[in-house]
Amino acid sequence: MFDPNNTFMYCLVAVVIVFVIAMSLRFIVLAWRRARKLGISSQLLRRTAVSAAVFTIVPAISILLGVIALSKALGFPLPWLRLSVIGALTYETPAAAAAAQSAGTDLSRLITDPEIFSTIAWVMTLGIVPGTILVPAFGKKIENGIMRIRSKDEKWGSLFMSALFLGMISAFLGMVFGTIREGLRGWIPFFVMVVSAILMCVCAVFVKVLKWKWMEQYALPLSMLGGMFLAIPITNLVDALV
């Protein structure tokens, strides 16, 4: 019987994880050296790195929860590998479920048939490849287009980039309103969004009025963590009201 948690699978994960670590370190060295040449201080670069690390911890825990959830059907190695490269929580579960279904089973119990397991591994891998092909193929062309816009009109180039961000932020802010027709419970994401936005404003007051410069780097992770933490009493309160 095939065991998805066997040593061979862990060895495959180890190879890919070592590759991810090596790639990340290579790009840190590349960017750090260039930043120093540009005159960006080591202090700012270190602050950037620490802030990114703090910001990442909680979302990474939610990714770990995804690994745990998928491990019930796929063991630990494959979900671990998939969620460390390219994958995203929103993609891996539907991909695994679709593959299992095509093989006439589901994800309700541990997959011990190697053919079904390899089907799932192939579908999870091939279902999300465009980024790895399109970035090397078209990344430079896309960047050159942005450079051209910037070089023609610096102010418009800056507004163009801001508009891109606002497009992304608008889509995800709008998504928060997707549940409000479900009653008071459906408003919970909205309440959490407002509370974390208020926390961000409080951080801004500390930075601007009290001159707590260090907080500038940590305002977003702190507000996000605060918002997530407050989601617990908000949910309890709403549950008590309905």
Binding site: I188, M193, V194, A219
Partner: peptide, 17 residues
């Protein structure tokens, strides 16, 4: 509830900025 609300908790502060 904390893990269910990562995206609202993330995009609220980003919207402020």
């Amino acid at each position: 509830p904390a893990f269910d609300n990562i995206l609202p908790a993330l995009f609220g502060p980003l919207a402020v900025v």
